[in-house]
């Protein structure tokens, strides 16, 4: 007695099974891919909000102070801002973070730099405002896929593209508002205006 399946039966059942598997798998991969894109977007928005918080706080705490560079000489200006056409530092200034602990005898003063490096926006915080060659610092990558950074500095109704302006020989203090626009790959343009309220000490 023949109790097995015929070749045709096996082939037909295999075809049906593979069809079902194909449909299931394609549906599953599409939804997983969709979910991954959603998560990436959420991560990106998250990092954007973190960057915004850092910048907002930094500019609130910016002070008009001539700090010293690693060679020990005083900087000519307390605030530096450049429109970056290439890699490197585009913002440099001193903040009073208010974080005073025994480990930091110079109080809460910190030197801050914002850097663009291979499309990544970084924030560097030096533990002291007056740096030496071995001043400890922390560097954080805050945002990826940055295509372009554009800056404007507003002081008493005039807008400057660079701070300090070319013809300022002596320290001209802080701008009133720093305008930053970031062109981000796959997201678009972000425009932010930050207030600087710091006073000289």
């Amino acid at each position: 007695m023949n109790t097995g399946f015929s070749l045709i039966e096996v082939l037909v059942s295999l075809a049906i099974v593979s069809l079902i598997a194909l449909i299931t798998l394609s549906g599953l991969t599409t939804s997983l891919d969709f979910n991954k894109r959603t998560l990436d977007r959420s991560d990106f928005v998250n990092s954007l909000v973190i960057l915004d918080n850092y910048m907002k706080k930094d500019f609130q705490q910016t002070i008009n102070r001539l700090s010293r560079d690693a060679r020990g000489s005083y900087l000519n200006h307390s605030f530096f801002g450049l429109n970056p056409r290439q890699e490197g530092v585009f913002l440099a200034f001193t903040i009073n973070s208010g974080d005073i602990s025994p480990n930091f005898p110079k109080g809460g003063l910190r030197f801050i730099e914002y850097i663009i490096e291979e499309g990544t926006l970084k924030r560097v915080e030096y533990s002291y405002a007056d740096r030496t060659f071995d001043t400890p610092y922390t560097s954080q990558s805050l945002l990826k896929n940055v295509e372009e950074v554009k800056l404007n500095f507003i002081k008493e109704n005039s807008t400057l593209e660079e701070w300090p302006a070319m013809d300022w020989m002596e320290n001209n203090g802080l701008p009133n508002i720093v305008e930053i626009s970031l062109n981000i790959n796959n997201f678009g343009l972000i425009n932010r205006r930050y207030l600087l309220t710091g006073e000289a000490i």
């Binding site: 549906g27 939804s31 969709f34 959603t38 998560l39 977007r41 928005v45």
Partner: peptide, 18 residues
């Protein structure tokens, strides 16, 4: 599949809201 799709799509809606 429909449950997983629903979770993912509500995820996407939440992210765009945020």
């Amino acid at each position: 599949m429909s449950v997983s799709l629903k979770i993912f799509s509500s995820n996407a809606i939440n992210v765009s809201k945020l």
